[in-house]
Simulated assay, not measured.
Amino acid sequence: MTTFHQIIGTALFAMTLATSPALADDPIEGRTAQQEQASFAADRADILAMAGNYKVTFDMQETTAWHADYEPIKAKISGGHESVHVIEDTGRKIVLQHLLVVGSDEDPFIVKHWRQDWEYEPEQILAYAGPNTWVLKDVPERLRKGRWSQTVYQVDDSPRYAGWGQWTTTNGVRRWRSNWTQRPLARRDATRNPVYDRYSAINRHQPMPGGWIHWQDNTKMGLVEGKLVPIVQESVLNTYRKFDGYPVAAADRYWEQTQGYWKAVRDEWDAALARTGGISIEEEAETGTVISGRLLEMGTRIAKGEMSESAAIAEARNLIRTGTSDGLAKTAQVTKAGDGY
């Protein structure tokens, strides 16, 4: 005989199923073709809106120590000026190149900064797999529909990290939220020789009035007795506000003079990836990789008329070919993306 408590329990369970929200990594379902197209167009508009000229603020704070012996470092706020160019747009792929402008108005200096590639419904991403190693990972087929990947590259166009996620609107605010991603340490941490050696993070990109923000929820991970464990939590808020009161023309001129060189550099990294199914290159605290400094220097010399583009491209190709390892041929084959939301 069914008891009163069994009846109530069954009813409550049914109510839970009916009212529970869908999981964040559930497939996107129930949209018409017209809704799909409208969503795709809105996503593209938000990505393309990140291009422009900006005053940038970097607000970094370690918040919670997960390891008893660790003392969080003091919060740090810094900033600068960045020009963000759209250097490729094929519809389903958008590439944004960041250029950092430093120095005085009379003598500006351009640093080729990070790059972000956005791809719609990607089959794979090039993900960080630990020191010196990036591998291709499958994006589960059921989760590709309606979603974008973001792959971030270092100043020398070597890979840095990648994630995938959906653009959504919550409380009237648009945002893209990644899955959990692994990242190598940024210069601000790597140069301190910390006890952690990577980040496990969720990234958000959100348009805002007059610009956009990039918010990072970073768990800094380190090896303790041979096991990867959380050391400290960090919150990073990078704010990009539209601003052109800096030598924007210098950034535009640098890119006009060096874009052919950097296109060849990107192509060579792609060739290295195609050879082995991954990228293996030695990391370096100051510049990201052991060849980064020279690749950046050659870009500067081209812009100053001190080196020919052809000579720089030849040297860059050799640096990438000799600096990357073919040892990934066996170990960096396509792996399953077990990273959920």
Rank of each mutant, 00 (worst) to 15 (best):
G323E: 03
R321S: 09
P140L: 13
R115Y: 08
V95E: 02
K330H: 08
Y196V: 03
H85K: 11
G293V: 03
S104Q: 10
G277S: 06
R160Q: 14
L319E: 05
R266A: 06
D25L: 11
L223N: 07
D252G: 10
D105V: 10
E234M: 15
Y246H: 10
T324F: 00
R275T: 07
Q97R: 03
Q216K: 10
T287A: 12
W114G: 05
I7T: 14
T16P: 04
I73L: 11
I125P: 09
V155N: 02
D69P: 00
R192W: 07
T258D: 07
D339R: 01
R317F: 13
T19R: 05
L223M: 04
A65G: 11
I302N: 00
I77A: 09
S178H: 02
A41Y: 07
T151S: 15
A42V: 05
Y199R: 03
A316Y: 03
F58A: 07
M50H: 01
D157Q: 08
I125C: 12
H85A: 12
S292I: 01
W167E: 03
T191R: 04
D25H: 11
E123V: 13
P27A: 05
L273S: 07
M15Q: 13
Q150P: 10
A24N: 08
G245Y: 09
I279C: 00
W269D: 03
K336D: 15
T219Q: 04
A249W: 15
I291Q: 07
G165Q: 01
D339F: 07
G226W: 08
G210Q: 04
Y196W: 10
I77T: 13
Q216E: 10
Y161V: 13
A14I: 14
I77V: 05
I213N: 04
I291R: 08
A75H: 14
A190R: 04
A68F: 15
W148P: 02
Q333S: 13
T64L: 14
T90N: 07
E309A: 08
D156Q: 09
A51W: 13
G52N: 12
G323Q: 02
Q206H: 02
T32L: 08
R187W: 02
T170W: 11
H98T: 14
R177Q: 14
L295W: 05
A129N: 11
T32S: 06
K220V: 00
E284W: 13
D105H: 11
W118K: 06
A129R: 06
Q116S: 12
E268T: 04
A329E: 01
A186P: 01
Q233S: 06
R198N: 09
K263F: 15
K304F: 06
D117R: 02
N218L: 11
R204S: 05
